[in-house]
């Protein structure tokens, strides 16, 4: 299609682009603008008052505002790092179990794993709040049967965030397993056979053939996992409301609390902008790392 078609293209693009402009781009621009203003969310935009970088100075400052924000930032970072570090290896391990042809049950496992991903978060949150219950929950009972020390799960500041990570891993690992299986099926069987003929054992085949060839899948999985983890909101809002003692107060929940509940739109926007920048930087770093790895090969 060599000829240019500006007019029909404009017509075709108008609905989607217009809607995304009104409901994504304009709000995003406003967020950036508001991050430089003092503004109450309950009033119109015309009441905003320019304060320069004061909001950013406040959220990184030594006051309560700053302390709360930094706690939330660290919580989100820890949550994201833990989630990705657990989900990615598990998804490959489960992917290998689903993909292998030696024993039956691969498809069954994929179905079970993916079904957890289809359960709405509100149901997951409620079931896990019950599973985690220190006295009447089954998880501690199982730990007792196995002779292991029980855990306070969501009711202790030390373990609450990790418990939310576990919940997230349980719900999302099925999706990433499906991605891993898709990556595994793209590895040509001939390459693995050639390695076998050359005398490579299964561990070597995995480390030197399968894993490197999964690179692109892993990069994609990592990006999606990071984005999902940074956006964690529902389990915190539904189960812990950020507690105990702010140990599960993640950024999304904190931004909503400051920006909507406390109506401090300027501060909330500054936090949102910081979150956006952090996300852009970490994903750019991930892509740079992947490119450097590819160039090094």
């Amino acid at each position: 299609m060599a000829h240019r078609m500006n007019l029909p293209a404009f017509g075709m693009l108008a609905p989607a682009t217009g809607l995304i402009a009104v409901f994504v781009f304009i709000p995003m621009a406003l967020t950036i603008w508001l991050s430089l203003q003092a503004w109450s969310t309950q009033t119109g935009f015309e009441t905003a008052r320019f304060v320069g970088l004061q909001n950013f100075i406040d959220i990184f400052g030594p006051t309560t505002v700053g302390r709360d924000f930094k706690t939330a930032l660290i919580n989100t970072a820890v949550y994201t790092a833990l989630s990705v570090a657990i989900i990615l290896p598990l998804s490959i391990a489960f992917g290998l179990l689903v993909h292998q042809k030696l024993a039956p049950g691969g498809v069954f496992l994929r179905t079970v794993l993916f079904s957890t991903y289809m359960v709405p978060m509100i149901a997951v949150a409620l079931v896990f709040s019950k599973l985690y219950s220190p006295t009447e929950g089954p998880l501690n009972q199982i730990l007792q049967w196995l002779g292991l020390p029980t855990s306070a799960w969501l009711s202790s500041p030390q373990t609450a965030l990790a418990s939310i990570v576990l919940l997230n891993v349980w719900q999302q690992v099925g999706y990433f397993t499906v991605l891993a299986v898709a990556g595994l099926t793209q590895i040509p069987a001939a390459v693995l056979e050639a390695a076998t003929v050359d005398g490579a054992n299964p561990v070597q085949r995995f480390a030197y053939i399968t894993l490197p060839l999964l690179g692109n899948t892993l990069l994609f999985s990592a990006v999606i996992a990071i984005i999902n983890a940074v956006q964690v909101f529902e389990p915190v809002a539904l189960i812990t409301q950020g507690g105990p003692v702010d140990s599960t107060n993640v950024l999304t929940y904190h931004i909503r609390r400051v920006g909507i509940e406390r109506a401090q739109g300027g501060l909330g926007s500054a936090m949102a902008v910081t979150l956006m920048l952090a996300l852009v930087v970490s994903i750019a770093a991930l892509f740079a790392f992947a490119q450097a790895r590819e160039a090094g090969e």
């Binding site: 009104v22 409901f23 994504v24 304009i26 709000p27 995003m28 406003l30 967020t31 508001l34 969310t41 119109g44 935009f45 990006v223 984005i227 940074v230 956006q231 909101f233 950024l251 999304t252 931004i255 909503r256 920006g259 909507i260 739109g265 909330g268 926007s269 949102a272 902008v273 979150l275 956006m276 996300l279 994903i283």
Partner: peptide
């Protein structure tokens, strides 16, 4: 890749 929370506060007023 944009977290919905980033646009939430202005969206609320829009």
């Amino acid at each position: 890749f944009l977290p919905p929370i980033v646009t939430l506060i202005p969206l609320y007023r829009i």
